[in-house]
Design a protein around this nucleic acid. Structure first.
Lengths: 212, 212
DNA sequence: GTCTATATTGTGATAGAC
DNA sequence: GTCTATCACAATATAGAC
């Protein structure tokens, strides 16, 4: 079900520098359209048009909409979750260092890929069991070093609260941005400025919360 | 485009107590299916089946999938945003009171309707312009009393950060729940317990952050 | 008001020429 | 490898009997 089908064809062209293969053009278009609209609202014709190629080529290279989708969402899940597990597990860093490191990494990542959280969470909702195994193996919060470090500091509060808090402070502004731009009337530029400010602020806020 | 079509037919039955009208059965089914899967992934047949009626009746009562959807999502947006504006605008409550009041109200609301945030935010993403006007008129954060109260306390930090923080602490756990249940291995019951704990905790955390 | 049957359109996928 | 044309089926919506 999750076999990787990526380079099942080798583009013949000798890659004359700046021009990319058709396969990659399709994949790049798929990344854009799928993450912006989600699987169900995306038509293969949208992807073909975005890629500037014909619909038939999509099936020629990737066989089906679903196969192409799996490639894209696995990439995006890797971006969203790939660094989280290792960061939480790291035995050598302090709690404060972990928060700083995670906040910096993910805010930079999400500024570059602001659609990912809503996309990934929405698709998990729509295909509940499809990703269960993969995710479960990827990150085990409860066994993590960070979980234990929190528990030592605040034995009176479930450590999960602080994991929620950290992730919420980092991720929520990106998920709520479409709405918050309307409600708060901020520009795209201002939004980026705010997100960058948060890299330092979250560290301070987290410390304040865990001492409160 | 947004005319309310709700009761365009009057069910003939005298509403023999516990049984509800067909129109309401369809609407209730639509609430459930739309919020769980989103507009694009929902088939009218899913709704008809969930309602225990025939597909034709859906069009008889609501004329189209889109009309039915508009009714549902306007309801859900009202639930998600209806109390926020007034709470932010309230000139008589302190900052701390606002946070407590908003956290309590929304956590209770979201425990009862956990699918709403992901649903509403996802549909705003997929129909960017459709809801712009309605939302803009509903809540103007920057003019709000809460915005000014925050600015007085912390003239050094953009007040929007603290609005993000409050909303993120409240809403994110519900958006991330599908993922976090996998990653953190928590049961549905435990999740509700955690959310209820947060009603009190968020108040304390917010105060800690604004003093940090 | 409710149903079955059907019309109509939308969408993923393939055939076959070049 | 790439295209046009088309197929096959899924999904929305309607007609018409009861």
């Amino acid at each position: 079900m999750f076999a990787v089908v990526s380079s099942n064809r080798m583009a013949k062209q000798t890659a004359k520098k700046a021009d990319i293969s058709t396969e990659e053009k399709i994949k790049e278009a798929a990344r854009k359209v799928f993450t912006q609209k989600g699987y169900a609202a995306t038509r293969t014709r949208d992807i073909a048009e975005e890629a500037g190629i014909n619909l038939a080529l999509l099936n020629y290279y990737f066989r089906s909409k679903e196969k192409l989708f799996e490639i894209v969402i696995l990439e995006k899940m890797q971006i969203l979750l790939g660094k989280l597990g290792p960061a939480l597990m790291d035995e050598r860093t302090s709690l404060e260092q972990k928060v700083e490191q995670i906040a910096e990494h993910y805010i930079d990542t999400l500024i570059a890929n602001p659609d990912i959280p809503l996309f990934v969470l929405g698709e998990i909702r729509n295909h509940p069991d499809k990703f269960a195994d993969m995710i479960r193996t990827k990150t085990k919060i409860v066994d993590s070093a960070m979980f234990k470090q929190i528990a030592e500091r605040r034995p009176d509060i479930d450590p999960l609260h602080f994991i929620f808090n950290m992730l919420g402070l980092i991720i929520f502004p990106f998920i709520g941005k479409p709405l918050l731009q309307l409600v708060a009337g901020i520009t795209a530029d201002h939004a980026v400025t705010l997100m960058n400010e948060r890299k330092q602020l979250i560290k301070k806020w987290f410390s304040a919360m865990i001492h409160a």
